[in-house]
């Protein structure tokens, strides 16, 4: 609490606007963490449980706790270079499936940015050098990362999706083979749409996918989702 207040007064002194990106209330975060604690341990002596331990999570590469068996999706994010920072953790815990497709983290996410900030403020205490972790990222984060309900409700034109999918099929196989490149067949429509929007908005890091998604409209993403959801059935 003291840290939070200190940061707040400094930003006032500097004439900065208070932003949602400021780290939150660690005591409230500790209470909120009780939900996470069903799967994740943190603090002295924490070990892996259903999920990996979260000591030193800030600055840690995704999927890098030794001996913990990650989902293919999360391991891939780590290999692609994702490092857990205030920003990436914030995106992940808002809607885990949008950031890491087919993650095993069965958690629907925290919609409220303040809740996320508070949980992250709590976790920050268990990082190796909390002092080195900024109170806030240098750039302002969006208030929240989300795809509007009306966008999720678009019914995709499957025939258009079939045409658009031909671009995907250069790498993603229709057979569902997934060596080196993930299988995207028979994927729930909402997960597909969330993932593609996350690439298009640049919150999910992968240069090829960002390049492909960058010129797809909402209708086109819905069309692709409609096509792949039933491919191979």
């Amino acid at each position: 609490m003291r840290l939070f207040l200190a940061a707040f007064s400094i930003s006032l002194l500097l004439g900065l606007e208070a932003q949602a990106s400021e780290i939150g209330d660690r005591e409230r975060g500790e209470q909120l963490f009780e939900v996470c604690a069903h799967c994740h341990e943190v603090g002295p002596g924490a070990v892996d449980g259903i999920g990996p331990h979260l000591n030193g999570i800030f600055g840690r590469r995704a999927g890098s706790v030794e001996d913990y068996e990650y989902s293919e999706g999360l391991a891939r994010m780590g290999a692609d270079g994702v490092v857990w920072t205030l920003e990436t953790l914030d995106i992940y815990i808002e809607n885990p499936r949008a950031f890491v497709s087919r993650t095993r983290m069965a958690f629907p996410g925290l919609d409220d940015p303040q809740d996320r900030a508070d949980v992250l403020a709590y976790l920050r205490d268990f990082s190796d050098n909390p002092r080195d972790i900024p109170e806030a990222e240098p750039t302002a984060r969006p208030e929240r990362y989300a795809v509007a309900p009306e966008v999720l409700e678009i019914v995709g034109d499957r025939e258009y999706g079939a045409y658009l999918s031909s671009e995907c099929r250069t790498c993603h196989q229709e057979s569902g083979a997934s060596e080196g490149i993930p299988d995207i067949t028979q994927w729930p429509t909402e997960h597909f749409v969330l993932a593609m929007h996350a690439y298009r908005d640049g919150v999910r890091p992968h240069p090829v996918m960002q390049m492909i998604a960058s010129r797809l409209g909402d209708e086109e993403i819905a069309a692709l989702a409609a096509y792949f959801a039933t491919l191979g059935e």
Partner: peptide, 15 residues
Amino acid sequence: ATFEESLGWYAGITA
């Protein structure tokens, strides 16, 4: 990871 992705691409494009 980029190398492994290229192997996946080869399998994908040849299919």
